[in-house]
Amino acid sequence: MRLRTTIATVAVALIGGTALAQDFPSGSVDYVIPFGPGGESDITARFQQPYFEKLFGEQLVVSYQPGGGGAVGWSQLNGMAGDGSVIMGINLPHIVVKPKQGDVGFQTEDIAAVHMFHYTPDAIVVRADSPFQTLADLVEHAKANPKQVIFSGSGKGSANHLAQVQFDALADIQTTYVSFKGTGAAVTALLGGQVGAEWGYTTVGAKQGDTVRMLAVAMEERHPAFPDVPTFRELGYDLVSGAYRGVAVPNSASEEVRQGVADAIAAINADPDFQKQMIDGGFALLDVSYGEAMDAFLAEKASGYIEAAKNAGIIE
């Protein structure tokens, strides 16, 4: 009897122990954003923060490790603890394009991406008083005046820049792209009339309201917050693109930890309040989870980005 109890106790302890090891989170989690505060990566992490605490009863501590357009953080990711106590934000196209541009301290394959949770679709944004009422107006003007349509956008080799390159090819036009440091600066240039249009994100439309007009969004279907704005596909240009964001873990993390993190991020994405907050902010939700789905997603995106980056002359 006593022996059996002992065995039972040990068994319970073992099972319990394994179950505990599988559990994520097992304590407070550091969420490292490889950019400075205030950008889209930071804001969405901040959106997730309260839901993480509500769902799992543990702290999600957001910290920043900016530098080199994310490269500083990603090059250090695999040196961090793989026990589920650290997760890091990742961005496409950055993690694909950067390593191809030179030695930035990491390779795309080094990064253990576990869940992509949203994207900011690319969009062409003009001022409310712009003569371009529709995308057709802009294309027509660009055809007649090569290079004279000047776009602002966030960064070189970024989602905005690659979208501009892809769209120029699709519409057979030549436009000029001026890289700014972050979306805020690109919007400033647009509002100040320094440029005629912006390659921005749907979030710009949400934030700037009536002062701007989006001509088209690079989504598969229209954005729920902007039912009147057509997609590029509707207008005959096969362009679905944007900056995709997710989380990665250090590559020493076990399968359990990877799955646990992926499940936790997916659980936050499933919360209706969280969804509403994201959509109102102009973001588009997405669930690409750890495993085959992720591999296929990354492979498909990577080939598109690399081709566009080659066309843009950013990589060889």
């Binding site: 901040r46 959106f47 805020g184 400033t188 949400a206 700037q208 309201g209």
Partner: peptide, 26 residues
């Protein structure tokens, strides 16, 4: 304008968004 004037403003702007306050023209 909803555009941060200085770096700390960028953080404050983010915190406001989480609070559901939409800065900008409105």
């Amino acid at each position: 304008l909803g555009i941060p004037g200085t770096p700390p403003d960028a953080v404050i702007l983010g915190a406001l968004l989480v609070q559901g306050v939409r800065t900008g023209p409105s």
